[in-house]
Simulated scan of single mutants.
Amino acid sequence: MKNARNNQLSDRRAASADAKTSLLNAYRAAKTGAEPARMARQAERTAIVSAREERRVERERLKHGERVRVETQAAEQRAAAEAEALAETEAREGAEKARIARVIEDEAARKAERDRRYANRKARQA
């Protein structure tokens, strides 16, 4: 059954104000009572955040180290490949020069043999 009393407006306003005051007092009491727990939760969150940040920094450091190692290894491989290509080019050039020198020597020997035959033929004719 509803409130059977016939309340006047002033009674209802006073009851509403009292209810609001009691709710506010209950909120303040709960807030001050929960303050140590809130501080503990806040400290725990701060610790979690700092640990997370330390782990992130460590991951970044490891990634950077790995990236530097990979770049160094790639640079070494490029240098080795370039050195190998240079050595191969030099060997090819050396072989080409040796072949040219042999051809020139053979040509000179052929000319010397031809000149000797020519000189012998002239000597026989004279």
Score class of each variant (00 low, 15 high):
M1R: 12
M1K: 08
K2L: 08
N3H: 06
N3K: 06
R5T: 02
N7K: 00
Q8R: 08
Q8N: 02
L9K: 10
L9N: 12
L9Q: 14
S10K: 12
D11Q: 07
R13A: 15
A14P: 00
A15P: 01
D18I: 02
D18G: 01
A19R: 15
S22G: 02
L24H: 10
Y27N: 07
R28D: 01
A29D: 06
A30I: 00
A30M: 03
K31S: 15
E35N: 08
E35D: 13
A37L: 14
A37V: 11
A37P: 00
R38P: 00
A40C: 01
A40L: 04
Q42L: 08
Q42C: 10
T46Q: 14
A47K: 13
V49G: 04
S50Y: 14
S50K: 15
A51F: 14
A51G: 05
R52L: 13
R52K: 13
E54P: 05
E54I: 11
E54S: 13
E58L: 14
R59H: 08
H64Y: 13
R67D: 04
V68E: 11
R69Y: 00
E71H: 07
E71M: 05
Q73I: 01
E76Q: 14
E76R: 15
R78Q: 09
R78N: 06
A79N: 04
A81Y: 02
A81K: 11
A81L: 07
E82M: 10
A83R: 11
A83V: 02
E88N: 12
E88Q: 12
T89K: 15
E93N: 13
G94D: 04
A95Q: 09
E96G: 06
R99F: 07
I100D: 09
I100Y: 03
D106I: 02
D106G: 05
E107D: 13
A108W: 12
A109T: 10
A109Q: 09
A112Q: 02
R114L: 07
R114G: 00
R114S: 02
D115M: 10
R116K: 09
R116L: 03
R116G: 01
R117S: 01
N120P: 00
R121M: 08
R121W: 03
K122W: 02
A123D: 07
A123W: 01
Q125N: 11
Q125L: 15
